[in-house]
Structure formats: structure tokens, C-alpha cells
Design a protein around this nucleic acid. Structure first.
Length: 232
DNA sequence: CCCTGATTCGC
DNA sequence: GCGAATCAGG
């Protein structure tokens, strides 16, 4: 494959959007991850949190021979090697691509719902069909968005929850899917037998682990569609 | 081991 | 210019 303008542009957008080289390569097709990285560097775009040590002393004390197809010529030792390294504080934003499946709600949520309005720094993206980046599942859905109209009641073992699964009844064999809102008197857990290997029963696994969004799913404003789905 | 990006260097 | 091989950190 050759680097057409479209492919370059896609590479640019995805790279700047935070997609990994592997994702980009997979999306573009016909190129390897290395090809993407190499091209990205050649394009001049780089400067992304790299796992490699930002050690300013990037001298090559032991440059291992990578290809001995031809004998290395005489390596001329230049006596100019004095680069004053100004200490530069790097602030690499951590970035993870595929976040784990969303647990529906905090199990024993006695948390005062602290307002956490913005975490715009680490952009969590994943590449959807067509190469657009979509937000992580965290902002796609909010399993329990409506404000819990909590009215706290004195701890009274009402018969309503007598046979409900309480927090203390949880073990790794029963479904931990929360029913209702924490703090409410009838809050309990599903209690069904779990789908083996999962923390939830079969039914709630279906809700916890949502499949890929259908292409037609109405989601008009994904902030960075990268040109949108491919038109084939 | 897996992943990541960076770099080198033969082509 | 391209990208496999390699390096190096997480």
C-alpha cells in the first residue's frame, strides 16, 4: 500500500486523536504498526506519551547492531559530544484504550456524589468500525443516572428486603448487579447465579457487557468522528 | 509475555 | 521515502 493523501490524513487525525499506532495500522490496513510510526515521524507529528524513558541522555552507548547484512564500516568517532541537557518536565497524559466493562453502580455506594465535572485531559478512545474514534463506555451510558431520591430510613430489617440479597450476601457465585439505588431501603443485589466467569448473572451480563453500538445507533455528537464512517 | 512509541538503517 | 528490525519502558 502507498501513502495516499487520504491515508496520510487519516493517520494524522487518528494519531493526533490519540489512537495508538497499532489501531491506526489496523484501521488503514496494509501497513504495519512500524510503518505507521515511521510515517508519523516522517510527517513530523510525534510528541505523544511514549513508554520509553524521557531520559534526556539519549546517547547510544551500546547501539546494538540491528542488521549485519553488510559489514559496518569504520565508525568515525567524532569528538563533539557535549549537549547540555536542560531539565524539561514532561507531563505525559496516561492513556488507556480499552477500558474494562462498566460496573453498573458502586456496590456499596455510600459515596457523597462528588461533582466531577470535567476530566478532559486523558482522552479515552477506541476505534470503531470505519475508523472513527468513539468515547469510552464511561460517557456512553450512565447506568443509574437519575438522582436517587434517597430517603434514609433507620436500619430496620423490613420484611421487604428480608429475602433480598444484601451486600453481605454477596459472594463470587451470585450476581452482584445492584437493584435500586444504594441507600434506599429496598436496595439489594440481583442474587441470581452468576454466569460462570462473570460477576453477574447471564441477564445482567448482557447489560454490563454491551456489544458494539450499532452503526445506526443515534449518537450524533461524538466529538471526534475522524471523518466519520467509511463510505464504501 | 503483552503492549506502547522511538530509532536505526538497508532498501 | 519506506518499513522491518530492534530497542526500551510499562
Amino acid at each position: 500500500m502507498s501513502w495516499t493523501d487520504e491515508r496520510i490524513e487519516k493517520l494524522r487525525k487518528m494519531w493526533e486523536g490519540g489512537a495508538t499506532a497499532s489501531q491506526i495500522a489496523e484501521e488503514l490496513g496494509g501497513v504495519s504498526r512500524n510503518a505507521v510510526i515511521g510515517k508519523a515521524h516522517r510527517l513530523g507529528l510525534k510528541a505523544r506519551p511514549s513508554p520509553v524513558k524521557p531520559n534526556e541522555k539519549t546517547a547510544r552507548p551500546a547501539p546494538a547492531p540491528r542488521k549485519s547484512k553488510a559489514d559496518d564500516p569504520v565508525e568515525t568517532e567524532s569528538p563533539q559530544e557535549a549537549a547540555p541537557p536542560p531539565p524539561a518536565a514532561a507531563a505525559p497524559a496516561p492513556e488507556r484504550r480499552t477500558p474494562p466493562p462498566p460496573p453498573p453502580a458502586a456496590a456499596a455506594a455510600a459515596e457523597p456524589a462528588t461533582e466531577k465535572p470535567a476530566t478532559p485531559q486523558p482522552r479515552i478512545v477506541s476505534v470503531g468500525p470505519g475508523g472513527f474514534l468513539r468515547q469510552g463506555p464511561g460517557d456512553q451510558q450512565q447506568p443509574i443516572p437519575p438522582a436517587p431520591p434517597r430517603r434514609l430510613v433507620p436500619a430496620k430489617p423490613s420484611p421487604e428486603i428480608a429475602d433480598k440479597t444484601s451486600l453481605l450476601d454477596l459472594n463470587d457465585r451470585i450476581c452482584r448487579w445492584p437493584m435500586g439505588h444504594p441507600g434506599e431501603p429496598d436496595f439489594h443485589f440481583c442474587g441470581e447465579k452468576v454466569n460462570p466467569g462473570f460477576p453477574y448473572c447471564v441477564e445482567h451480563c448482557g447489560r454490563a457487557y454491551q456489544a458494539q453500538l450499532p452503526r445506526g445507533a443515534r449518537r450524533p455528537p461524538p466529538p471526534m468522528p475522524f471523518g466519520g464512517p467509511r463510505v464504501r
